[in-house]
């Protein structure tokens, strides 16, 4: 059996670092920050708004416009090598004055580091709910960003295919994880059922799928006209 590729060992870039251990007695605030935070500050000065250490986890608040450069630098720089994107999500607080936060959880496997990067989107009516997409750095961001868009309505600029993922594409009740979205949805159960029954199942096929296989030409005339005109709901 011949080996195709050699084994990648996490922690290989920092062989002298102490062996990882279960964190104990972690303080609420303060404690040693991730060294990448200082490196980011030195490299991007104004791009880093502030650094917080909460329960031992370092959070770096960065400027929205610099986010992509910062993430790319974290990924590429040999002293950082954040090669693993754990999660992309957003947080909306109950207080409507507080900004919506978009959160990236990054891991550096070679250095065994964990870093949380946040962008604050103030709700002043002027800032759009938009952040740069990191899809070109991490392919894993594809679905994570789609989900974040689907649930919060945050647009990831530069994402190749920013469609809804968990909700269906014709869903137009809003963004379920926003605080102004009621727990049970915008319509009553009876109304939701009626809408589901009245929906046209043909409309569940996206334009993209119908065109890939030239199946589009085989559709009934009425449906083709409807799809061509851009109407997708069939309702």
């Amino acid at each position: 059996m011949s080996a195709s590729w050699s084994v990648v060992l996490p922690g290989s870039a920092a062989p002298d670092a102490p062996a990882p251990a279960t964190p104990k007695q972690v303080p609420n605030r303060g404690g040693p920050a991730n060294p990448s935070a200082d490196a980011l500050r030195a490299r991007f000065q104004g791009g880093v708004a502030r650094v917080e250490v909460i329960w031992g986890e370092t959070t770096v608040y960065v400027d929205r416009t610099r986010l992509f450069d910062i993430v790319q630098w974290l990924h590429d720089d040999p002293s950082q090598r954040y090669d693993y994107l754990s999660d992309v999500t957003a947080v909306e607080y109950r207080d409507p004055e507080q900004p919506i936060e978009v959160v990236w959880h990054l891991r550096s496997l070679p250095y065994r580091r964990f870093l949380r990067v946040k962008v604050e989107l103030p709700r002043d009516g002027k800032t759009p709910l938009e952040v740069p997409s990191v899809w070109s750095v991490y392919k894993g961001a594809d679905w994570l960003e789609r989900e974040c868009y689907d649930m919060f309505g945050i647009r990831f600029v530069g994402h190749p295919d920013l469609r809804r993922i968990l909700m269906w594409e014709q869903y137009h009740e809003g963004f379920p994880l926003r605080k102004d979205f009621p727990l049970r949805g915008r319509f009553s159960r009876a109304e939701q059922l009626q809408q589901a029954l009245a929906a046209n199942p043909e409309a569940r096929y996206s334009m993209e799928e119908l065109t890939v296989a030239q199946a589009f030409e085989d559709l009934p005339e009425a449906m083709r006209a409807r799809l061509k005109s851009g109407e997708r709901t069939g309702e």
Partner: peptide, 17 residues
């Protein structure tokens, strides 16, 4: 795929180390 990343080993919890 040959990447020996295991949260239990690299970011331990519950005294897995």
């Amino acid at each position: 795929s040959g990447v020996a990343f295991d949260v239990r080993r690299d970011f331990p919890y519950l005294d897995y180390e």
